[in-house]
Amino acid sequence: MDLMFKLFSLTVFASTLRIATPVILAALGGCMSERSGVINIGLEGMMLMGAFSAVVGSYFFGAWIGVLIGLLTGGLMGLLHAFMSVTIKANQIISATAINIMAVGLPNILIPVIWPNHFGISPTVPVIADIHLPFISSIPVIGKVIGHQNPIVYLTLILVPVISYLLFKTKLGLRIRAVGEHPQAADTLGINVYKMRYIAVTMSGMLAGLGGAFLSICYQAQFSMAMTAGRGFIGLAAMIFGRWSPKGALLACLLFGFADAFQASAQAAGVPIPPELMLSFPYVLTLIALVGLFGKTAVSPAANGKPYFKG
């Protein structure tokens, strides 16, 4: 009983939110990109580059500039992916894979150039501190969970309805979705297919970059090799699970975040399962969640992954 109490305490839910944040941002990025018809498995690499450049930015100019630089770097990577998949019409998975490979190597090369005698891990840098929400934190249960969090966590929770509104209620969103479903038809109506895809994929990279920045200068205070540990891919899985909608993806991400927070607290509480196996719990859960979609309609945007040749 005591153990159960420890495992399901409110701190677990609070850390669920924190752990889910970068995954939510990646999933939002996935929604943007794939709704416009561009598959983006490069979210992982964009996130990693965002995490790295955020640390560099924070080291030299302070944490908030770091976040901005992380976001912009992610956007730059998104732009690269857009160039490859929209203009060059390369295989989108190949292009994104190249981004993922580069994102693992490039920081390792730059770390010793920026900080001599550092290898694979950056020095610790200024972080963005958690904040207290004055009224909400005094509400009994909810206050414990969301009253004391990082600003980026709040920003992410706001971004979910914002992106949802953008995609489903605005003219730009309608155009992005039209381009992802039937680019020929959209083109005949005078929508610039290439431009829409460029916008969507660049924004997707920015969201992933922000997720990376959260990871390196909010969740942790330094960059370490391959620190994203598959979160970009899990975000992608969450997006599919949430059927290409930001709100659905949010729920899937929270489920994943809970799995991770739960395994961490179970370890701390001394549950006799080897820690290495516990660490694989979120990945197993993601797999099961994807399988659980079976029988329900999980239909991706019709033109997803197909380059558009302007006729």
């Binding site: 498995i41 998975i93 891919f233 992608l236 990945y283 197993v284 797999l287 994807l290 399988v291």
Partner: peptide
């Protein structure tokens, strides 16, 4: 189940 292989293999 129609699970995209790119995602399942990353988890695996």
């Amino acid at each position: 189940f129609g699970v995209h292989e790119v995602i399942s293999v990353i988890m695996l």
